[in-house]
Amino acid sequence: MTTVDELLRLGDDALIAAQRLAEWCARGPEMEEDVALANIALDQLGAARLLLSYAGERAGTGTEDDLAFLRDDREFRNCLLVELPNGDFAVTIGKLLFLSVYQLARYDALVDSADDRLAAIAAKVRKESAYHVDHGSLWTVRLGDGTDESHRRMQSAVDELWPYTHELFEENDLRPTWLSTVEPVLAAATLTRPEDGWAPTGGRAGRHTEHLSYLLAEMQVLHRAHPGARW
């Protein structure tokens, strides 16, 4: 049976990724890309709701809203990658690529889970993840193999984010699968695959970067100031 902690890891990754991506809303580089990023954010939010609802039921800790709005940073189990700031468009795309390739591999594996409810969630959201991978790859290639400036920015984004990808594989053996998708994309984008080295960690144990508290403050303030507020 899936552990509650595993559900929180998956659900919190999706929730925090959704909140970060939503920051692009009305700030996208083009109207079309604005819509695309908002769509992906909503996909992640949908996955988070399914996973956190299930986690809350299993643990008896309340609803999806209780988990999303009433936990403090130390109680969140998301990886550090998703809480990092959006940076420029290249960093956002790098985060999207690295996260979505990981999520797709996880959901692909979970489709066969003995936990029927989690298997059903994975089967639903893996199609969305496949599209996120497509979007992330497409832009990584265009920025990497674009102008001198876009190449410089995309390489710098990949270099900056690479250390944070190690944490994704602490509780699974999917890194070879992940690399088998990511490395060809980097090659097609004429980008240099960074060396493995520093591997910051702690997110899965609730030890986060300073960025998460600010994100949570913005995400939770309304619910905490006006408990039970409705549209």
Binding site: E30, M31, E32, E33, V35, A36, N39, D134, H135, L138, R142
Partner: peptide, 20 residues
Amino acid sequence: SLHAPDAVVALRNARDVYTR
């Protein structure tokens, strides 16, 4: 109609803007 840098991105943008 929509704006896109190339045909592949145009198709993706069309999916997001017109078939969501």
